[in-house]
Amino acid sequence: MKRLLVAVLLSASAAAFAAPPRPFDEASLAGIRRQLDGRPFILALWSIHCAPCREELPRLQALARRYPTVPVVFVAADPPEAHGDVERLWQAMAMDGPPGWAFAHDYLERLRFRIDPDWFGELPRTYFHAADHTSRAHSGVVDLQQTEAWLSAVSAAP
């Protein structure tokens, strides 16, 4: 019964549902890292203004779903006045689950700097975090084959 309940809850979560994105502030990434301590994860930054993101996000999520031990943390680099659009676009892209995070305010360069001082704001921007949370940054649409190889490697690691 308990197992059934869990299955029902999981399947319920595996469909886009309307919810505002969680506000991503200067402390959020540190919190995410604490929560995912010792685990590999992908930090995927996108924006409602970024056309390539629209093609990338569903593909990245679909791919990552096959490696459930490696979470993908989606963060929209869009300020609060755009969070309604973030939510709508998330649903339009048929993304699973709630729409991740979005920038908590419009002092964008400060939020960007906190994530990575060497990131200029180009989107999509993806960080592949190993289990020890050293990360590799990629600007632009990710290569799905390379991403799959990375996912496979970090999932297989002890």
Binding site: H49, C50, P52, G121, E122, L123, R125, S139, G140, V141
Partner: peptide, 8 residues
């Protein structure tokens, strides 16, 4: 070389 939006 970049498949992204630089917004710049």
């Amino acid at each position: 070389a970049l498949d992204a939006c630089p917004h710049h």
